[in-house]
């Protein structure tokens, strides 16, 4: 089963892994942000990604908006959606209790997935755009243009999120709530508002991820599930709550998956991700960038 590949193939596999990993990072940003601040695992994350991808589809088919341009309206729209969802549904229904949040987000994922099924039906759809098949010729490898764009925007989103958290007042409040909820509320920070803002930011990054995915991927009512598990591994690898960690974690997981796929086959190669995941948890549970628990 193990065979040796010429260096060029290995190098290309690494490049593919980096491009895929950037998407993983994009999907993981929201998850890690929400985990870092609210300390919850959002089970509706995958369904929200699916929703965003259908939104891109509708924007393109219904309104003729290019997926990349759709970032402009969809990002604020999804921020508002995420904010509202946390503030008016998840928080009141769960009273911020861990077990209850788990169930509420699970319930929401069932609702979203099947609502999309009822509306759009079960067909797998794709967008065909002028640039869908465009490639960047690096001289030794042909890289898919949409995936290269996705990689670049993922870096920009990481930088933007980092800037929001580090430089703005809201960002400082988010970090304060993440560290010490009680203390933050004592100094006058509206914890519920900050929770909702964080959730909104998570949803907004999903909207960006959806816009970047659609030119080279497909959408059906269950598509988000494909990314959730891998996003969890990225979050753990990077350290829960760390944006930089999610970026590096995403890229690492992308490359690991790519190489283990190359040597073990795509199928068994999936084990590579989970073994890395288990090993990281067992030996360095705070992840690459996480603070000490």
């Amino acid at each position: 089963m193990f065979r040796s590949y010429p260096p060029q193939i290995v190098l290309e596999a690494v490049l593919n892994g980096l491009l895929t990993g950037a998407v993983y990072a994009l999907v993981a940003f929201g998850l890690t942000l929400v985990y870092g601040v609210l300390h919850i695992i959002n089970f509706a994350h995958g369904a929200m990604l699916t929703l965003a991808m259908f939104a891109v589809l509708v924007a393109h088919i219904g309104f003729g908006i290019d997926p990349y341009l759709a970032i402009l309206p969809l990002t604020p729209l999804f921020f508002a959606f995420g904010y509202g969802l946390q503030r008016f549904v998840i928080s009141p229904a769960s009273r911020n209790d861990d077990g209850a949040i788990l169930l509420v987000t699970l319930g929401l994922s069932i609702v979203l997935e099947n609502l999309l099924l009822a509306i759009f039906r079960s067909d797998t759809r794709t967008l065909t755009l002028d640039y869908s098949f465009s490639v960047v010729d690096t001289g030794f490898a042909l890289l898919s243009l949409p995936r290269v764009i996705g990689f670049g925007v993922a870096l920009i989103v990481a930088a933007a999120l980092w800037a929001i958290l580090a430089l703005t007042d809201t960002g400082k409040a988010i970090r304060a709530v993440a560290k010490e909820k009680l203390g933050a509320s004592l100094v006058g920070i509206d914890v519920n508002h900050i929770y909702a803002v964080t959730f909104g930011l998570g949803a907004a990054t999903l909207a960006v991820a959806a816009c970047l995915l659609m030119p080279s991927f497909y959408v059906n009512p269950r598509v988000g599930n494909a990314f959730v598990l891998v996003a969890f591994t990225v979050v753990v690898l990077g350290g829960m709550g760390s944006i930089a960690g999610a970026l590096v974690g995403g890229l690492v997981i992308g490359v690991v998956e790519s190489l283990s796929g190359l040597y073990l086959g795509e199928s068994l190669g999936q084990i590579g991700i989970f073994l890395i995941f288990i090993l990281v948890l067992l030996f360095r549970p705070t992840g690459l960038f996480g603070a000490k628990a």
Binding site: V104, N114, L115, A118
Partner: peptide, 18 residues
Amino acid sequence: VPGVDLVVYGLLLVVVIA
């Protein structure tokens, strides 16, 4: 229309928890 029953199920789940 497929999925409507599961939408209702999901909503009920959220309500029960609430």
